[in-house]
């Protein structure tokens, strides 16, 4: 755990490497989604399991978790600048594998477009793809939450919205959501996001894989991805919605290992084949 100053912003970073130093191990950087989450869940489910064989770097985007909540700077290009500065601050000078989750997928794609020399591969988990109209994939949820938080709401409302959480947890979630949605420019920044065009996507030269749940609101973007990035490989999790995709940690972990050129773990060897058949 460490706070690293990158692009003028304090970012909370966790880096996992277990065992002897091995300069050849792949560097894998995880980018989480937008909202009340940070990188903690990904650290436990995907980052730490890769620690014995990879250099896994996870961080909280600005405005999230224990990273600094800046009043502005919440466009995808800002997150790209943060990420590249973070890699520089960590003295990572080899191309990295990016795992972009949900909104983090858009950040990963944009990073590969703007800095193709820094990226070895993209692995996208139920991702937002920055094609025309993409902000509408996430804005309704963010705006609804902001409207509720700026009106008369009770902690009981939040407890119910979270499926019956404790009062303490609901209050903490509401406080974090208020901090980001009401006290920063994040909503305006998302509303005004430009889309990338075909020429932009043509700058992606690294291998690209994505996993989508076929019940996810993001799933229609899979067609955009394969149309704009020839050779992109899409895996589909039948019956999974946007949130439940992230519960398929063994399958996703096995696919990530394969995507970055690592041999499958013994326990997950069969899962790689199984997941591939779903593509």
């Amino acid at each position: 755990m460490a706070n690293v100053r990158a692009n003028g912003v304090e970012l909370r970073v966790n880096r996992y490497r277990v065992g002897d130093a091995d300069d050849d191990r792949p560097v894998i950087v995880f980018i989480h989604g937008l909202g009340i989450v940070d990188h903690s869940g990904l650290s436990f489910t995907l980052g730490m399991p890769l620690a014995p064989v990879a250099d896994a770097i996870l961080y909280a985007l600005r405005g999230h978790g224990h990273s600094e909540v800046t009043p502005s700077g919440y466009r995808v290009v800002d997150h790209v600048a943060d990420l590249v500065a973070l890699l520089d601050a960590l003295e990572v000078d080899v191309p990295v594998h990016l795992v972009g989750c949900s909104y983090g997928g858009a950040v990963a794609v944009a990073t590969a477009v703007r800095h193709p020399e820094r990226i070895a591969s993209l692995f996208l988990l139920d991702p937002v793809i920055p094609v025309p109209g993409w902000p509408q994939r996430i804005l309704p949820m963010l705006e609804a939450a902001a409207a509720q938080l700026s009106g008369d709401y009770t902690v009981e409302d939040v407890m119910a919205a979270l499926g019956g959480s404790s009062r303490r947890k609901a209050a903490a979630v509401a406080q974090r959501a208020e901090r980001l949605l009401l006290n920063t420019t994040v909503l305006d920044d998302v509303r005004s996001e430009p889309a990338l065009d075909a020429d932009d996507f043509a700058r992606i030269t690294c291998p690209v894989q994505a996993v989508y749940g076929d019940q996810s609101e993001m799933y229609p973007l899979a067609d955009s991805l394969t149309a704009l990035v020839p050779g992109a490989e899409v895996h589909v999790v039948p019956g999974a919605d946007h949130l439940s995709v992230f519960g398929h940690t063994r399958e996703v972990g096995a696919l990530i290992r394969r995507a970055v050129g690592l041999p499958p773990s013994e326990a997950a060897a069969d899962l790689v084949a199984g997941a591939s058949r779903d593509a």
Binding site: N14, D38, S40, G41, F44, H66, R168, V173
Partner: peptide
Amino acid sequence: IQLESMEVMEIAE
């Protein structure tokens, strides 16, 4: 205890 993942992370750290 109804901990969020970031709280479990804090405890672990």
